[in-house]
Nucleic acid binder design. Structure first.
Lengths: 206, 206
DNA sequence: ATTCTTCTTGAACATTGTTCATTTTCAAGC
DNA sequence: GCTTGAAAATGAACAATGTTCAAGAAGAAT
């Protein structure tokens, strides 16, 4: 049976507007940081009233969370593009790709990791799950490299290793903190993964 | 010569008030998070007007930054208390102590690492420097363990390793993100340091 | 064409950071 | 102790920004 509902004119406009609001919000976050994102700026740039933003996203956090959701989706897509031919190269590739993506979209990533909800409302579960899933992308290559290890242990190792890389990169790119030159950071991450794989017995000691 | 100026009544009150404002701001951040910190709440709890807060700290960021400054000072003091008898134990101790401190003061640490300035004003240099100094506390034990290595390389390694530990802990304690049980996190950090020291050739492969 | 539903609007409101003219407080000089 | 001048405290007013909602506009249904 055919459930394809033809889209009404109303829905078309609604969708177009929704996309435009998100595009503008993302651009502002990316260029000027989350703290510079203002409802009125978004509404004006999108050519609609502030009420429409609320009508579409419930509250302003809704806009931010939707941008964050799309950020982690884009990140995951990029990470999935890393070749899976050789597991060791794949691990290096995941770290290097994360660095690239973070460097390109630093403010968007900060929005994803640093945004806090008002009061104590919980962060949406689906976003958290997507982040964890992205961090689990080191799992398959690690399984191939450590075929005798417990699968639960590998899952934990994957999260740990990716979290460590995240820490190195997010602090390294923090222009607030004595900016590490990008080229040096790349080397730094590579060296780190290298040493850790050596410690796991995957690479030979040098 | 004796420069000890006896403190005027005026200065006494000023200092007392300053301390009280900071104490209250810290308590609010620690218990309800940075986003719940409001000038009026602080002023009321400190028994003074909002103007006095501004008079003392310039703007509201000034209050936050002062709390953050004291947080990194307290952190550094705790890290300096780690015994330096055995360098390997010292490294484990630094990681474990960071975990402890982070777990006890999660919201204060998040304020330190996640607070962004309005517009694009730069984060105060002295705070950044203090954070880097704290992260450099792994330098001395690493020098002892790798006596033949280049000192600049060790400095970088110290920052890398501490940043990695920071990433594991800050994401692990993120109750937003599928909370890792604290006991497990401790093990996780220990295992991580273990593997990395093995990769550096400091510990034997197992 | 008419009616009904839904969406849009933007002025009004609520919250919160910031300023500043006025008042108060304190210390110094007489 | 009183006077006076400087410094600080006050809080009402202002500014910036998130949020709501009654009224109107736009599209869908008949």
């Amino acid at each position: 049976m055919n459930n394809v509902q033809e889209e009404s004119l109303r829905d078309q406009k609604k969708n177009r507007r929704r996309l435009q609001i998100l595009e503008i919000a993302r651009r502002i976050i990316a260029t000027k940081g989350l703290r510079s994102l203002k409802v009125r700026d978004v509404a004006e740039a999108a050519g609609c009233s502030v009420g429409s933003v609320y009508n579409e996203f419930g509250d302003f956090d809704g806009v931010i969370l939707t941008v964050n959701r799309e950020t982690v989706q884009a990140l995951t897509a990029r990470l999935r593009g890393v070749p899976a031919d050789d597991p060791v190269r794949q691990l290096y590739g995941l770290a290097a790709t994360y660095l690239e993506f973070f460097a390109e979209h630093a403010n968007l990533l900060r929005s994803l990791f640093e945004h806090r909800m008002e009061d104590d409302r919980p962060y949406p579960d689906d976003i958290l799950q997507m982040v964890m899933d992205a961090f689990a992308l080191m799992h398959p290559p690690l399984v191939r490299l450590l075929p005798n290890a417990d699968d639960v242990k590998i899952a934990l190792l994957s999260r740990t290793l990716f979290s460590a890389v995240h820490g190195i990169i997010s602090l390294g790119l923090e222009e607030r903190m004595v900016a590490v030159p990008p080229q040096m950071l790349r080397q730094q991450v590579e060296q780190f993964v290298d040493t850790h794989l050596t410690g796991l017995g995957i690479l030979p000691l040098r």
